[in-house]
C-alpha cells in the first residue's frame, strides 16, 4: 500500500505505536515497582519530529522483522553518537546544533559518474520503504527500529562503480561547531566507516532518511545515514557527507581507535568474544532478561554467503 503522508492524514503507524507503547508502559510499570526501575513518563509524550515528506511503502518488507518495536522515546533518547558526547543522552540534548538544511552528499572515488545529491534528490532517487530491523550494539544491547530508506545499491548503480571499486567508504560530517563532541579526541574525526562493495550492494544495506514515519531526528544521524543490520551498530555511519568508492580497504573509526577489539567487518557474531562485553547475549532495550544473540544478528539467510571464504574469528 502506498501511503501519502500529509499533515491532514493520520498515518496508521502512529496509532499502532501509541497503543503498543501504552501496553509496554503498563507491563514495565509492574516490573519497575519490583526493581525500582520505572520507565520514562517521557515515552507517553507524543513524537516531536516532522512527518516524512514523501510517500513510502509501508507494507511490511520481506526484510522486516515482526518483533516488537522499541519505543520511539527509547530509539530517540538512547544513542551512541560521539559527535555529540559520549553519554547516552548527550545526543538528544546536543543534536539541535546540527544544521541539516542544504545538506549534500558527495559520491566520489572509483565511479564513472561522480555526483553530488541534495536531500530532495535522495528522497526521489528510488522508491522509499519502511524496513523494521534489529539493531545490535557492540555494547550488548539491542533495539527494533522501523527505518525509512532505500537500498544503497540503488544509489551505487546510479554512479556506476568502476572495475577498480572494491570498497565503499562513508565519511560523516566534521564540524566541531555543530558537533561539540568533536572537540574532544575520543575518536579520530571525522567519523569514517566502510564496507566491502558486495556488502554495500546487499539488499539489506539501507540508505536511511527516516524512522517511525518521520524524517530522521538529528540524534539518530540526520539527514542521511546508513543502516547495516547484520553488523554492530557503529558500522552504520550517521550524518554522511561523502561516500567514496575505493580500491583499498578504508580505515574505519573504531578499528583505528582499537584494532584488537573492533575489526573492519564487525559482523554480529556470538562466537567472537569481546574483552568488555559478552557477545553471546544481548539485552533488548525495554526487557529485563537477556536473550541469545543470533549469528549475523539473525540475517544469515541474506548475508552468510558473503563470508563463506572468510575465517570470521580472524576477520571479526
Amino acid at each position: 500500500m502506498k501511503n501519502a503522508f500529509r499533515s491532514d492524514i493520520s498515518p496508521s503507524e502512529i496509532t499502532s505505536r501509541t497503543l503498543f507503547e501504552s501496553r509496554r508502559r503498563w507491563m514495565q510499570g509492574s516490573l519497575a515497582s519490583l526493581a525500582t526501575m520505572a520507565i520514562a513518563p517521557a515515552s507517553a509524550k507524543s513524537r516531536d519530529g516532522k512527518d516524512f515528506p514523501v510517500a513510502f511503502e509501508s507494507e511490511k518488507s520481506e526484510f522486516s522483522t515482526a518483533e516488537k518495536l522499541t519505543t520511539y522515546s527509547d530509539v530517540t533518547r538512547y544513542n551512541n553518537f560521539y559527535e555529540f558526547g559520549t553519554g547516552k543522552e548527550d545526543p538528544v540534548e546536543q543534536a539541535h546544533r546540527l544544521k541539516t538544511d542544504g545538506w549534500t552528499i558527495n559520491i566520489i572515488g572509483e565511479v564513472h559518474r561522480p555526483q553530488r545529491f541534495d536531500i530532495d534528490q535522495l528522497l526521489r532517487l528510488a522508491p522509499l520503504e519502511e524496513r523494521i530491523y534489529r539493531l545490535r550494539c557492540v555494547e550488548a544491547w539491542s533495539m527494533v527500529i522501523p527505518w525509512i530508506g532505500f537500498p544503497l545499491s540503488k544509489l551505487l548503480d546510479l554512479v556506476q562503480p568502476t572495475g577498480n571499486a572494491r570498497y565503499v567508504e562513508f565519511i560523516s560530517l566534521y564540524d566541531p561547531e555543530q558537533m561539540p563532541g568533536q572537540r574532544s579526541a575520543v575518536l579520530d574525526w571525522p567519523y569514517k566507516e566502510g564496507l566491502r562493495l558486495d556488502e554495500a550492494m546487499n539488499p539489506l544495506t539501507l540508505l536511511t532518511l527516516g524512522l517511525y514515519g518521520e524524517i530522521l531526528p538529528n540524534q539518530n544521524g540526520a539527514p542521511v545515514r546508513l543502516v547495516v543490520p547484520w553488523k554492530y551498530g557503529f558500522k552504520s555511519a550517521k550524518s554522511i557527507v561523502t561516500i567514496k568508492l575505493t580500491e583499498k580497504q578504508p580505515a574505519t573509526a573504531w578499528n583505528v581507535s582499537n584494532p584488537s577489539e573492533y575489526g573492519f567487518y564487525s559482523n554480529v557474531n556470538p562466537q567472537v568474544s569481546h574483552p568488555r562485553w559478552s557477545q553471546r547475549k544481548e539485552r533488548r532495550i525495554g526487557e529485563f532478561l537477556k536473550r541469545d544473540t543470533e549469528m549475523f544478528n539473525g540475517y544469515s539467510e541474506w548475508v552468510a554467503d558473503l563470508y563463506r571464504d572468510l575465517d570470521l574469528s580472524k576477520h571479526f
Binding site: A32, T36, M37, A38, I39, A40, P41, A42, T70, S73, D74, R77, Y78, K88, E89, E139, W141, R283, I285, G286
Partner: peptide, 17 residues
C-alpha cells in the same frame, strides 16, 4: 531511587545503575 521512580535511568536502567 528518586531518578528510578521518575523514570530517569535512561532506556537501559541496569547499565545506568
Amino acid at each position: 531511587c528518586g531518578r528510578g521512580m521518575m523514570g530517569e535511568l535512561t532506556a537501559n536502567p541496569i547499565e545506568y545503575i
